[in-house]
Nucleic acid binder design. Sequence first.
DNA 1: TAATAACCGAGACGGTACGTCGCGTCTTAGG
DNA 2: CCTAAGACGCGACGTACCGTCTCGGTTATTA
Lengths: 193, 193, 193, 193
Amino acid sequence: MDTGKRGPGRPRSVRAHESVLEVVVPLIEAHGYGALTIEALARRAGVSKQTIYRWWDGKAEIVMEALEAAAAQAPPTPDSGSVEQDVRAFMSTTIAAAGGGNGRLLAGLMAEAQLDETFAASFRERFLARRLEALGEILERGRGRGEIAASADVAFLAEIAFAALWYRLLVRNAPLDGRFAGELTDVVLKLAR
Amino acid sequence: MDTGKRGPGRPRSVRAHESVLEVVVPLIEAHGYGALTIEALARRAGVSKQTIYRWWDGKAEIVMEALEAAAAQAPPTPDSGSVEQDVRAFMSTTIAAAGGGNGRLLAGLMAEAQLDETFAASFRERFLARRLEALGEILERGRGRGEIAASADVAFLAEIAFAALWYRLLVRNAPLDGRFAGELTDVVLKLAR
Amino acid sequence: MDTGKRGPGRPRSVRAHESVLEVVVPLIEAHGYGALTIEALARRAGVSKQTIYRWWDGKAEIVMEALEAAAAQAPPTPDSGSVEQDVRAFMSTTIAAAGGGNGRLLAGLMAEAQLDETFAASFRERFLARRLEALGEILERGRGRGEIAASADVAFLAEIAFAALWYRLLVRNAPLDGRFAGELTDVVLKLAR
Amino acid sequence: MDTGKRGPGRPRSVRAHESVLEVVVPLIEAHGYGALTIEALARRAGVSKQTIYRWWDGKAEIVMEALEAAAAQAPPTPDSGSVEQDVRAFMSTTIAAAGGGNGRLLAGLMAEAQLDETFAASFRERFLARRLEALGEILERGRGRGEIAASADVAFLAEIAFAALWYRLLVRNAPLDGRFAGELTDVVLKLAR
DNA sequence: TAATAACCGAGACGGTACGTCGCGTCTTAGG
DNA sequence: CCTAAGACGCGACGTACCGTCTCGGTTATTA
C-alpha cells in the first residue's frame, strides 16, 4: 500500500491530472469518441502530452477513469429485502446512467475494446465484470431468501440483462428509458423463477 | 433495380472490386480490425487507393460488403412447422457464424459504428435490422400456429437474443458455442410462452 | 509530305483541337502556368484527355502551339535598308509581344524546358533559335551594307539582346517597355560598330 | 539577429536540417530538379516529411538554402584597383560556378520562380538582386576612379551581364566557359566606356 | 450498303506525390 | 523529478493528376 513515502523530485501535479479528466467528457460530447485525440486533450487541458502518457496508458484508460469519476466506481447493490425491488432499482439506476451523457463514453470504450486487446482485458475486469457481479449479488441474495429458483443461473441472467442494455446502447435502435428498465426487470425475474 | 443501363466511360473493374473483398478478411484475421488500413488493403489487393475510395465510403463499408459476400446477405429463416426447432436452428447457425472467423469482422464493424454515425445508420439498417427481422419472422409464424403467447413482444424477444449474442461477441467473456445457442433458445421460448 | 491521302476511319476533329488551344491561354492567365493541368484543360475544353494525348506530347507542347497560333510563327524581319531602323523595329515588336499577355506563357515554357529535357530541345529549335536567327539576319544584312563592323559576331550580339529580354521576362525586375527596347537597340548597335 | 534566446520545447535538430541540405544536391544531380520530390528528400535524408515542412516552405526554398550553403551567400566583390581586372575576375568566378554542378540547381530555381510567385519574390531578393548589386558595386568603384563613363548606367550593365549568363544557363545553346566570361567582360567594359 | 477503322466523350485504372494529422518518444528550460 | 512546450521519426490519411485503358457512339473510307 502507499505509505505516503516519496522519492526526491517534483511530485506529480494533481492539477494536471484533474484538468485532463475535466476536459475529456465535454470533448467526447462535442465531437464524439472517435474524434477524441490525445493531442486535442492535451491542448484543451493545458497539459503536455508527456504528462498524459505518464499517468495513463492510452485514451481509453483516460475515458475509463473519467467514467469512474463521474459514476461512482462501485455500482450500487440495493438491499431492500425484495429481489424484485432490488433488481428494479438496479436496472433503473444503471439504465438511466447509460442513457444519459455517459452513453457516448461507454459506447466508445466498448469500441476501443474491439480495437485494442490490452484495453479489452482491462475494461472487462475493471468495469464490465463488476457490474455483472453487482447484479449477480442481488439475485444471489434473492435466492438465499427463496425468492428465485435454486437452480437459476444467476451469472447467466445478469449477462442477459447487461447484454440487452449494451445492445441498445451500441445500436441505438430504441431508447434506454424507464420502460425498458421495467421490461428488462420482468424478463430477468421471469427467467429466474 | 439495376436495369443494366450504363453511361459512357470505362466500366468499373470487377476484378479490382473482387480483389479488395478477397483480401480484406485475411487482413483482419491476421492483424485485427483496428490495424486494417486502406493503404495496406490497396497494396495487398494490387489496387490503387483512388479506386477503393471510388467504390466505398470507408473501410467499414468494405468490411460490411465482404461480410455480406461471405455470409449470404439474407439470414436463413427455417420453417419446419415447429417454433422451437426453427429458433434452435436459427440460433445455432447464427451463433456458429459469429463464433467463427467472422467474429472479428463483426466486432470491428460494431466498433466502427460507435466512431462513425454515418456508418452506424448503414450498419443498423443493412445488417442488424435484417437479422432481427428474420428471428422475428420465425417467432411470428409460431404465434400464428399458437405455439407462443398471443401477447408476446416478438421484436423485443429477438432483441434479447441478439443482444446476448453481441455481448459475448464483444466482451468475449465466454464462448459462442452450441451450449450457448441452446441456452439462448430456451430463454427465448420461455419468455415467449 | 502530307499528300492529303488518308486511311479509313473518322478524321481527327478540328473542333476538338481548336477548343483546347482556345482554352489554354485564358487558363494560364487565370491561374498561372504552374497550375495548368491536362485534366483541367480537358474539362474546360470539353474534350477527353485521350484526345489531348493523341494530338500533343505534353502540356508544354500545347502551350507552344497556342503561342505559335497567337504570335505568327515566324518572327518578322523588317528590311528598311537601315540596320538601325530594322533592329529598332524588331526589338520594339518583340519586346511588346513578350510584355503582353504572352509573357506568362513564355516564362512557363522556359520553366518547362528546365524540367523536361525533351521539351527543352524542341523549344530551343522550334522557338528560340528562330528568333535568334531572325535578328542575326537583320544584322547580317547591315554588315553587307557596311553599316556594322565586318568583325562583329552577329550571333553573339543577337544572343545578348534576347538574353536581356528573357531576363526581364523571367525575373520581372523591370518593365518590358518601349524604353527598354530602345536601350537594347542602342546596346546592340554600339557593340556592333 | 539571433539573440540565442529560446523558448521551451525541444530545439530544432541541426542534424535533420543538415541531412536534408546534404542530400538535395546529389538528388538533383542524379535525376534533375524536376524529379526532385519532398518524399524522396525525406527518405534519403532519414528525416520525416513533417520535419521538412516545418523548416521550409517548399522544395525551392530547400534548394536555395543548399545553394547558399554551397556557394558562400555573399558573392565576392574583388577590389584590385582596376575595373577591368575586377569585372574579369567576377565574371570568371561567377560563370565558372554557374557552369559547374550548380547549373541544374540554378535553372531549377528559375523554373520554380515561374511557377510560384511567392518563391519568385524570395529568389529575386535573396539571390538575384544580390548578384546584380555585387557587379554594380564593382562598376561603381570603377566610375569613382574615372575608369568608366560618368553617364554609364551601371545597374543596366550588370543586368546585361547576368542576363547573358542566365540565357546560356537556361537555354544551354553554348557552354558557360572561360571564353564566354571573357567575351562578356569585353561587352560590359565596351558599353561602360 | 455494309464492314472496317480511327476518331470522339467519358471515366475508371494503377500509380506517385502531395500536404496534413495524430501517434508515442525525446529533449530542452524551468519550477 | 515533474512540468509545459514543442520537435522528432513514423505511418496513414484523403486528394490531385499523371498517362493508359476500355467502354458506347460517331464519322469516314474501302470492299
